[in-house]
Design a protein around this nucleic acid. Structure first.
Length: 472
DNA sequence: ATGTTC
């Protein structure tokens, strides 16, 4: 893959047939994926062939190999110009994302109660593979209400407060979700998992604000140095996974009929305005709402534990997805266009002044929540004016070792003890689960964030460090 | 990421 270094944090993959646009990789030389073991830059070039793509096929600094699209990939297609939507551009964990809550409590005051708090959170957070959930749904009609209403429905049913919705992307629910586009199998997989963490890199962490980089933005977000926070990272569980599987299969079948030829089967797609494109977006929206309700319910469970153990409430800073396709208006060559923006392992980062931000956040921009690898640090960023890549930035540290490689690498180590040595209390998680998530398996989140900021994609607001983690 | 292979 020929990369042209355009500036310190920006590399270009020149357009060559059948690419329709160039590739743009935001990275430093040290963060570029290893071409021997990671095909993500070839995937950036493949994405550039999608019908209707505009601008460039973008890669964020945490890019790595994924299904069809790279994880850390951003691509927008022009809806009115035959632009396509591709399930592989969203990924299997639809609307996987992060929510951050703050406690009116400083880390020093929590210290004597941390073990009790972690015990409580460990008990009240359903996690791991398979079933177990905060909410046991009455019937299919209630699950449909979750799929249509997301966090909004969860709050209506008492799992949260109305203010939470002001601090959720899309005010807690994506429009145009249609449960009728969700297969019986997806429903079956999702019914018993509403309000559950899952496994892999998903977690619920108690953190402390270690450093503030921008006092005024941090204050607008409700963050101060030393403050205790809760970060929840999870997605749409088996339901989103099944929806992706179902719709990839449909699109594989209809692509030839639309005259679409892609260099990789995993880039199965259909025009946004086609029946199959619309069906996918309606099902994807349902999964997105499921994921948001999921985070709302886990936050509710955490609030109950905080109230009981330390006697304080949790305020929502923000809830944002990092795996989603959205229809958004952006200027292309100076003209406003309706685009289908795919963000896969990438975070929307609205600039200050954007009309979709709640009034109190509008002067400072959208909070962007970046979970680091286990036991390291997480970041809060904000959107910046005139950001490239359709107002998108990185989403996390980015894996550099496969799960198998990571598992092999910790042979002879005790991951739980090593985390304890870093002063991080762990609840849940199998030895193998921890092994796969050790920081050595990931890029350095601090380097990723520095490049994202250096490239003009976002600005740093605060760094958070873990005190305790609940894992699947 | 995932009832870790329909």
């Amino acid at each position: 893959m020929d990369l042209v270094e355009e500036s310190p944090y920006r590399f270009r993959i020149d357009r060559r047939d059948p690419m329709r646009v160039p590739g743009v990789v935001y990275a430093s030389p040290a963060l570029l994926p290893d071409a021997g073991s990671d095909k993500s830059l070839e995937q950036v070039a493949n994405v550039a062939t999608l019908p209707g793509i505009v601008g460039a096929s973008y890669a964020m600094p945490d890019v790595h190999w994924g299904y069809g699209f790279p994880i850390g990939g951003v691509a927008a297609t022009d809806v009115a110009a035959g632009g396509v939507v591709s399930p592989g551009g969203v990924g299997f964990d639809i609307s996987c994302g992060v929510r951050l809550l703050t406690a009116d409590l400083d880390r020093a005051a929590l210290r004597p109660r941390l073990d009790a708090l972690m015990d409580g959170l460990g008990e009240s957070t359903p996690r791991g593979m398979g079933r177990g959930a905060v909410w046991h749904l009455g019937d299919r009609a209630e699950l449909d209400a979750v799929l249509r209403g997301g966090s909004r429905y969860a709050v209506e049913r008492g799992f949260g407060v109305p203010r939470d919705l002001d601090r959720c992307e899309d005010r807690g629910a994506v429009h145009d979700a249609d449960p009728a586009q969700v297969s019986a199998r997806a429903i079956e997989r999702g019914a018993g998992q509403v309000g559950s963490l899952g496994s892999g890199n998903h977690f619920l962490e108690v953190q402390a604000v270690e450093e503030v980089y921008d006092e005024s933005v941090a204050a607008a977000f409700g963050l101060r140095a030393g403050q205790v926070c809760v970060m929840i990272h999870c997605g749409s569980r088996g339901l989103g996974h099944q929806i992706c599987t179902d719709h990839v299969r449909v699109m594989e079948g209809v692509m030839p009929g639309y005259g679409i030829d892609v260099p990789d089967r995993q880039l199965a797609c259909a025009p946004v305005t086609s029946p199959q494109g619309r069906a996918y977006l309606a099902a994807m929206a349902a999964a997105a709402n499921y994921a948001r309700a999921n985070r709302q319910l886990l936050a509710h469970a955490a609030r109950q534990v905080f109230a009981r153990v330390v006697g304080c409430d949790l305020d929502l800073v923000y809830d944002v997805s990092h795996n989603l396709a959205k229809i958004e208006e952006h200027r292309v060559d100076g003209t406003p266009r309706r685009l289908c923006v795919h963000r896969k392992g990438a975070t929307r980062a609205l600039p200050p002044g954007h009309p979709d931000l709640p009034e109190d956040l509008r002067p400072v921009g959208q909070p962007v929540l970046i979970p680091g690898s286990m036991g390291t640090a997480s970041y809060v960023l904000t959107g910046v004016p005139d950001a490239p890549a359709w107002a998108s930035t990185c989403h996390g540290a980015g894996r550099v070792r496969s799960r198998t490689q990571a598992s092999r690498a910790v042979r002879g180590h005790d991951p739980r003890r090593e985390l304890a040595a870093r002063d991080v209390a762990v609840r849940g998680a199998s030895r193998r689960g921890l092994a796969e998530e050790m920081p050595e398996a990931y890029k350095d989140v601090t380097a990723v964030v520095a490049v994202a900021e250096g490239a003009g994609l976002c600005a740093k607001v605060a760094r958070l460090v873990p005190l305790g983690v609940v894992k699947g």
